[in-house]
Amino acid sequence: MMRFDLVDLALFRHVVEAGSITHGAARANLALAAASTRIRAMETSLGAALLTRTRLGITPTPAGRALLAHARGLIAGIERMQGELSGFSDGTVGQIRVIANTNALTEFLPDALAAYLARNSGVSVAIDEHTSDEIVGLVAEGAADLGILSGTVDTGDLQTFPFRNDRFVLVAARGHPLAEREAVTFTEVLAHDLVGLDRTSALTRFLADKAVRVGRPMRLRVQLRGFDAVCRLVEARVGLGIVPEGMAHRVARGLDIRVVPLDEPWAARDLTLCLRDLGALPVFARDFVMHLRGGSSSEGR
């Protein structure tokens, strides 16, 4: 008879979402040896492999995908229960799982998140970064309670609400050939060296895909962890950068750089909140969505 406890199910979800047992164990706060033992015991109890193991990581087998769907449903149900019952205790209310693209994560979420958490001491928020295309599938699968992505992406049957508006722009050092242009295309930018975020960031992967589509390589000379550092190296003439417009204008006040509009339809970033069912979220998670929406009471589509 199969005997999986909640620790098993949570661990399995973390392992699949992280793509490795090592990283999944860390997310579940378990030692690697203990996590590996639990996964093997689950497979033995089921009588079938749950994971396919390769040098590049793990992927779920058909049995693993079925288990993952059930695990996500059960864990979500428990989190909803905790949220509904939170008013009867002084303990931790629960956790909200958010997946966001680079622009939302760096430019808009920090302030909104700080304001919400200041008023909700029992709530924690786990945030992962993905491209907008990836976010739709992950939210639909139940990997997150809420996604924040580009409004240009087809969200299918997910509920959506408007969030913020911004756009990506080019930043260039004073005197660079593109610095005084009224606007530039991405193809023109690709003729020069670039400074950007590391290759695992959603923005870098998004731009790399756009570069492939126009048939030009993206020459990243330096990869960094934040947009402020990108702009400082742009000022030092290491290369050009592509960053959110709001952040670019704030940083430009203290640096000798120029902000140039990108003449590309994808540069506009109308950000959207997406989720499976607002009414099915725990109370604290619904409150978080309403907080991000600015208290609007309009219905999502």
Rank of each mutant, 00 (worst) to 15 (best):
R225D: 13
A104K: 08
G142I: 08
I78L: 12
A140Q: 13
A63D: 13
G19V: 08
P62W: 15
R13H: 02
V260L: 08
N165S: 14
I242Q: 07
P110W: 09
C231V: 12
A236N: 12
A144L: 07
T102G: 10
T106I: 00
A112W: 13
G73T: 12
A69G: 05
S121L: 08
R258H: 12
R301L: 09
L190H: 05
T272E: 03
A140F: 05
V153P: 00
E79F: 00
E84I: 06
R53H: 10
E245R: 15
L207M: 14
V15W: 01
V169L: 09
L220D: 02
V230H: 03
L203Q: 10
P60C: 11
V184I: 09
I39C: 03
T59Y: 06
L170A: 06
G19K: 08
L220W: 12
N103K: 02
D256H: 10
A33P: 00
F227P: 01
F163H: 09
L138D: 05
S36T: 13
A71R: 06
D228M: 07
V7A: 11
R27K: 12
C274R: 00
D145A: 03
P261Q: 07
M247E: 01
T61F: 08
Q82L: 12
R65P: 01
H130N: 03
H23K: 11
A31N: 11
A248L: 08
L68C: 03
A143G: 11
D277R: 05
L138W: 11
L67N: 03
F163D: 05
A285R: 07
L11Y: 05
L50G: 03
A41S: 14
G47H: 04
H130Y: 15
G94D: 00
F108N: 05
A252P: 01
A48H: 08
N103Q: 10
G57C: 05
L255K: 02
T44K: 15
V212K: 13
L220A: 01
D145I: 02
H23Y: 00
R174E: 15
L281D: 11
R27E: 09
S121C: 01
L190D: 05
S124M: 04
A100L: 05
V123S: 10
I242V: 15
R97K: 14
S132T: 05
L194F: 06
A66W: 00
I135A: 00
V212L: 14
A280G: 03
R72K: 14
A115R: 15
A179Q: 08
F186Y: 15
I242L: 14
A267V: 04
M218D: 00
E245V: 07
G294S: 06
L190N: 07
D198A: 14
I127W: 10
G300F: 03
G300D: 09
T155Q: 02
A126G: 06
H249I: 10
V153M: 12
G246Y: 02
V93G: 02
M290W: 07
I96S: 03
D270K: 14
A10G: 12
R119N: 04
P60V: 09
R216S: 13
